[in-house]
């Protein structure tokens, strides 16, 4: 059974609205930040690794050109 008579009664939280909603607000916003950051980090790492691969390929290529010019 719902303990509140109306929506405004629910938001009022028996006079403790500020404390209850502050607690819930900080909880779910900090969880949201943690989840978003955790989910994004995978792509960041993969892009970093791909950058490394590209750099290695470039190095190899330029080394190849250098050794050709010497001969």
């Amino acid at each position: 059974m719902i303990q509140f008579d109306s929506i405004s009664d629910f938001f009022h939280m028996g006079g403790y609205a500020f404390y209850v909603w502050l607690a819930y607000g900080i909880t779910f916003s900090s969880l949201a930040i943690l989840i978003v950051m955790s989910a994004r980090s995978k792509r960041k790492i993969l892009v970093e690794i791909a950058g490394k691969i590209a750099r290695e390929a470039r190095l190899k290529e330029s080394r190849g050109i250098n050794s050709e010019s010497k001969t």
């Binding site: 939280m13 028996g14 006079g15 403790y16 404390y19 209850v20 607690a23 819930y24």
Partner: peptide, 11 residues
């Protein structure tokens, strides 16, 4: 504690 105790469900 009235309604303030509802913080318990996350605390």
């Amino acid at each position: 504690q009235g309604e303030s105790y509802r913080i318990i469900f996350i605390h």
